[in-house]
Amino acid sequence: MTLWLHILVLGLLASLAGALWRVWHGPAQSDRMMAAQLVGTGGVAVLSVLAALQDWDLLVVALALAVLAALAAVGFVKAQTPDSAGDPEETPPPTGGDRRSRAVRATAHGD
């Protein structure tokens, strides 16, 4: 059982490595951010398995990670709008030079 759990964790870490590859390559900012969210989800999974392996208290850590991962996503979304405080959902679908398409274009340029 322990052996299998170890192998499971290693497998999960390998999937994290895949997500990290996406963080490195991008190309758009949103690609990197989504990959980071994937790392967060994978991290929660790793911690859950580690909880079974070592100590059930680690589930609390996994839960904290799950709650806090959302924060980074919200911060990212907010940073995408021109005034850094709005919501990209607020504007209608892109029809030329409006806010959203500018935000998307800025995103596509990477850094």
């Binding site: 990670l65 806090l68 991962a69 924060l71 980074a72 919200v74 990212f76 850094s84």
Partner: peptide, 10 residues
């Protein structure tokens, strides 16, 4: 992972 991240992102 949480607070420092959002601090740097914004």
């Amino acid at each position: 992972a949480g607070l420092t991240g959002v601090l740097l992102l914004t």
